[in-house]
């Protein structure tokens, strides 16, 4: 049974009558369709408004965060600046009487860091003189280093 194509001769009377009935085409306008199709195609790109809105929100959040971070940083810097003079004596007091008083007897070596720091902060004239500089004229010359020559790989030439 070929049900897909019905030759016109095989149509019964009812089918023949029905084919004479023409569906109404009143109100069907191609221009209206084209307008609607064009409007629909222009409306289809909804991804860009969403992306733009997301970027705008991100920029706003970053701006607020940066402004907050800057104000907090400035406030912290101001607190540090205000607290700096008060902190220095406190640090000195924490060191104890032995270090806070310059006249206190401290068993420091003359070439030590502590002695050098004291000399820098208090009086450069009291810079400790190293022992080897003090007796420079009486010191023996330093031995020259041995030199390795190219033709005598096993022996070192004494200068």
């Amino acid at each position: 049974m070929d049900t897909n194509t019905t030759p016109p001769g095989d149509l019964n009377d009812v089918e023949r009558r029905l084919t004479e009935w023409q569906p109404s085409a009143i109100g069907l306008e191609v221009d209206r369709l084209m307008f609607a199709a064009g409007r629909a195609s222009a409306r289809s790109g909804r991804i860009w408004p969403i992306v733009s809105a997301g970027l705008a929100l991100t920029v706003m959040a970053l701006g607020i965060g940066l402004a907050h971070e800057r104000s907090a940083r400035l406030e912290l810097a101001m607190q540090l600046r205000d607290a700096a003079p008060a902190v220095a004596p406190a640090r000195g007091s924490e060191l104890g009487p032995a270090e806070s008083t310059p006249t206190s007897p401290t068993p420091a070596q003359p070439a030590s860091y502590l002695a050098a720091r004291r000399a820098l902060t208090e009086d450069l004239d009291s810079w400790p003189v190293p022992a080897h500089s003090a007796g420079l004229g009486e010191r023996e010359p330093a031995p020259r280093p041995t030199v390795l020559t190219s033709h005598s790989p096993v022996t070192l030439i004494e200068p």
């Binding site: 569906p23 109404s24 069907l28 369709l33 195609s41």
Partner: peptide, 23 residues
């Protein structure tokens, strides 16, 4: 309209829209 030519669309509409509306 990105894909289908407007002439083709118009021809299809004129040809089939009345029966399609009846359906």
């Amino acid at each position: 309209m990105p894909g289908i030519d407007a002439d083709v669309l118009g021809r299809l509409y004129r040809q089939h829209a009345p029966a399609l509306r009846l359906y």
